[in-house]
Write a protein that binds this DNA or RNA. Structure first.
Lengths: 164, 164
DNA sequence: GCCGATCATTTGAGGCCTCATCTATTGAGG
DNA sequence: CCTCAATAGATGAGGCCTCAAATGATCGGC
């Protein structure tokens, strides 16, 4: 039997009353992200036999047709370089991306989508977007906009607190 | 698309203008969570040589002094049972939790914090909360409240969309 | 030309996580 | 009782991820 998760019991709804407001905000944020991520992962897996990290990497390349260096991918995906190496290795093996040596810097590699990779990504992206739209459709356009703006502030807050 | 500006570079800020609003909301949510999570992980690692999953598991046990069964932990942490088995094994080995057999069901185990585990957790929790407070301190109390409420709606939206 | 600092990437150990599968136990009906 | 489906947990393969260390290339200054 599969170990999948379905009940409305989670980290956040279990926080005791004594927990403080900032902590509960953080736990709720984490819960929302985990829920959405689990849905998106399940969908990618079920319909395309693809993982979210692979999809994210390909998404970056689709936006940058001239390709990206490993380090650029690492920054954009917010993961370590070693990690990008591994995922790229797999995608190369599957023929979805290429690693090319740029003429000017022999330390670097430029990763690009192959035509097959691009086709594969576009097919997934369409379904993926519809899925995300559905997940957030319980909020009105105004609420989505407010949430979007508040998250922008949160992002700034976290970044500046972290860099102290 | 010039790459020469030294702006914060991540998944979300790189979404092209053509991407739709729901998708950008999702990417921004993911970015915020990733940023906060990375800070929190780094802090737990640096100050206490502890990981976030271990901390989360101990937090659940601290709120439930009578202990929790593996399956309960799995639901609350939103991870699979196999995963809980592994993390629990380590904490048992480190003397921070115990696995006890309940009298009524020989299939199950009840996991509890040891006194040492509780002391260790409480020490971390104090520092952890201060850290989280700092990360969200760039938002006003009102904004935090609004964000909290919008995330509640998002959680409901995601849950109901997923269960269709 | 050479040195050292820095940079891009890879490697390897180890932790987290999922899925699929397995074992043991429980509990409801015959 | 006995069977059988459901349940609690463990296990193993495989992917993701981080950190730390290593390799090789580049660049500025002498």
């Amino acid at each position: 039997m599969s170990d999948t998760i379905s009940e409305p019991v989670d980290r956040e709804s279990r926080a005791s009353r004594a927990d403080h407001e900032a902590l509960r905000l953080w736990l709720r944020l984490l819960t929302c992200t985990s829920l959405m991520e689990a849905s998106v992962r399940a969908e990618l897996r079920r319909d395309f036999d693809c993982t979210l990290p692979r999809f994210d990497l390909m998404a970056q390349l689709e936006r940058n047709p001239d390709g990206l260096r490993m380090g650029e991918l690492s920054k954009r995906l917010m993961v370590t370089g070693g990690n990008v190496t591994g995922i790229t290795d797999q995608l190369v093996k599957e023929g979805l991306v290429t690693r090319a040596a740029p003429p000017d810097d022999r330390r670097a590699f430029v990763v690009r989508l192959t035509p097959a990779g691009r086709r594969s990504f576009l097919r997934m992206a369409e379904s993926h977007e519809a899925w995300v739209v559905k997940l957030v459709s319980g909020l009105s356009a105004l609420e989505r906009r407010q949430l979007f703006d508040l998250l922008a502030k949160l992002k700034k807050s976290v970044t500046s607190a972290r860099d102290d």
